[in-house]
Design a protein around this nucleic acid. Structure first.
Lengths: 188, 188
DNA sequence: AGATAAGCGGGGACTGTCTCCGTTTGGCTC
DNA sequence: GAGCCAAACGGAGACAGTCCCCGCTTATCT
């Protein structure tokens, strides 16, 4: 999984600077932030940016991979301290909240969960899917979740809940409400 | 509601041409279609386009106002031929399907239902809200819908269902599924 | 027909994307 | 260390889109 060939020192340095500046820029101006501007702020030419990250999507992915992995890991933490049904709901709540708070994450997670996506995204999308699978399976075994639900459906619905919540005020104030409306339909 | 001052004949002609070409262009290239290109196709200068429609949003609204009004009207048709609960579900289904099929409509309806929106949009957003209000009220009186639901919440959830459905295949194949998962939670 | 203001249109400034290619530099080998 | 060379850099510039400005045209009224 490591680089086949180790990066040259300057390349690595630029890569890291770009990533750092991109994180700032995306947080500040949303996912539409100017790429040339990110390059400038990182003190490199735009050619360098486009060599490391051929598309905006690629850069977005690189910036948020960590956040996505963290979400997947969080699932196990919740599974350990709560009964399965509650753990699932709580996880979905945090998932949706993350999608709203961190601009760009929603679109990214969307494409990670959708069909055709990039290699790196597919992989960390898999972590999320696997996490969802575990929580869903546990809740179903416990008997608090409909048996006919696929974990991918639950993820898509979480995305939907985030979309719905976004419509009423930018903050995620309504997430729990919409999620509870949702789950009362999900419960077996 | 008519123009305070009747438009000059040429202005009206250009306005209509722009609207027609815009509808084609948005259907063809999505809501990001080039505005200058729309102007060119309509045989007018870009200045003319920007005078009639100061922003992309304004043009989008003008193009889809009719479609939105049609959705609102459809609610009464369904209410007349189906029991309240079914009418609501069917309407939400058509609403979500429309949002997915007609590119741009989802974002537009989203902002219509969200907080601050333009005057024209607010008005036809009101038609939709009023329609939702009637269907929701009827279903609640019938006893097939939770009493604590606000109609605006139902609309937002429909938006969420559309978002969720979009994630699995571009067509609206999954709408009914997600809607049924949703409604089984909504039913009293 | 002539007056007049509403409306037209497209040139051009500006912003952002992305590529190309001459120049620089890190990391070898001797 | 000196020298080599491929990897990596950088920024100029082509291109595409947005949007404004202002001199010109034309519908409408009298």
């Amino acid at each position: 999984m490591a680089q086949v060939k180790p990066m040259r020192a300057d390349a690595r340095r630029n890569y890291e600077r770009l990533l750092a500046e991109a994180a700032v820029a995306f947080a500040e101006h949303g996912e539409g932030a100017s790429l040339d501007d990110i390059a400038k702020r990182a003190g490199v030419g735009s050619g360098t940016l486009y060599r490391h990250f051929p598309t905006r999507q690629a850069l977005l992915e690189a910036v948020y991979v960590d956040a996505i992995e963290a979400i997947a890991v969080r699932a196990d933490g919740l599974a350990a301290e709560l009964p399965p049904g509650e753990a699932l709901v709580e996880w979905l709540n945090e998932l949706a909240a993350g999608m709203i708070q961190v601009r760009g994450l929603k679109a990214l997670l969307g494409s990670a969960v959708a069909d055709g996506s990039s290699e790196v995204l597919a992989r960390c999308g898999s972590s999320v899917k696997a996490a969802a699978e575990r929580l869903v399976g546990a809740a179903q075994r416990e008997g608090t979740l409909r048996r006919d639900l696929e974990s991918i459906e639950v993820l898509r619905l979480a995305h939907g809940v985030a979309s719905a919540s976004e419509l009423g005020g930018g903050d995620g104030a309504h997430i729990r409400r919409y999620l509870s409306l949702m789950t009362e339909g999900l419960r077996a």
